[in-house]
């Protein structure tokens, strides 16, 4: 354990360099640079608001913020896990020549996605100011769901990174699964709107209750959108999932990491 910590300290600079590289390079080649991070969610939110706001039929001036808060958080989850899954393979040439603790690659990938996500939260701040949102001190509690989401993404990312070394087509499968998770995460609809009596609604409700990503999004919205206390059942559940996923992720990764090079 002690040697692990020492090793981490030695390579801490590498971690910051890798994160910096990802963030820098992501936007270097585009003229709009980092503004893409801001522009992209604005545009998609406009589209989603027009489409799904029309479906709802009710006029709700705060609905864009509702969509934005869910979408930003979800895109961190899906982007982070997908990038982490690929991280071992994209860095395989490096891995074959220099010894570096291997967890650096998925960790750096997820951290850089997290940084980009935090930057994109500026959009949410802007939208909350423009639109009539009830903002109070609960906003500061948003740190909690963000942290939980980080660890859910980290754990899932580590598991996927390990699995993808051995099964390359997992990438496509995971793409399908994330889409499925997206539809069950209440990003552009409110489950309350869906007509209580229908059987499909109650089924969706059950799925969403067990969806840890939705649990985090729900609590995030409590903090930044509704300005009320968090749902403690959802908080408790998502925390447990985050811890379990992270532990499994680290365990699987460390158990299999010596075989990576043989399979790349």
């Amino acid at each position: 354990m002690k040697t692990y910590i020492q090793n981490f300290k030695k390579y801490r600079f590498l971690l910051t360099e890798l994160v910096k590289k990802d963030v820098k390079l992501k936007y270097r080649r585009s003229k709009l640079g980092i503004f893409w991070t801001l522009l992209e969610p604005i545009l998609t939110t406009i589209v989603l608001t027009i489409v799904f706001g029309g479906f709802r039929g009710k006029s709700d001036p705060t609905f864009p913020v509702y969509i934005l808060s869910g979408r930003l958080l979800f895109s961190f989850f899906s982007g982070g896990t997908k990038a982490a899954a690929r991280s071992i393979r994209t860095n395989s040439s490096m891995m074959r020549k220099v010894y570096v603790p291997k967890y650096m690659y998925p960790l750096a990938t997820i951290l850089s996605n997290f940084v980009i996500f935090l930057i994109s939260l500026i959009v949410l701040v802007g939208a909350s100011i423009i639109m009539p949102i009830n903002i109070n001190w609960h906003v500061f509690l948003a740190v909690v769901p963000l942290t939980v989401m980080f660890f859910i993404t980290l754990g899932t990312g580590m598991i996927l990174a390990t699995a993808e070394v051995f099964f390359r087509d997992l990438e496509y499968l995971w793409g399908v699964i994330t889409t499925l998770i997206m539809y069950c995460s209440g990003i552009f609809y409110k489950i309350e709107d869906m007509g209580q009596a229908k059987r499909t609604t109650s089924m969706l409700q059950t799925i969403m209750d067990w969806n840890p990503v939705y649990a985090v999004i729900k609590n995030f919205r409590c903090c930044v959108y509704l300005g009320v206390a968090m749902d403690y059942r959802a908080l408790f559940y998502s925390c447990i999932v985050a811890v379990v996923l992270t532990v499994i992720g680290i365990y699987v990764f460390f158990k299999k990491q010596d075989e990576f090079i043989l399979n790349l």
Partner: peptide, 29 residues
Amino acid sequence: PLLELGAGFDKQYTGAENIYLYGSLLGYS
């Protein structure tokens, strides 16, 4: 190991940035 020099370079990065990246890969502060 002086094997395959510059294997850790990132092509999009400038030489100066790569000095830091490659240096950090080799474990320098």
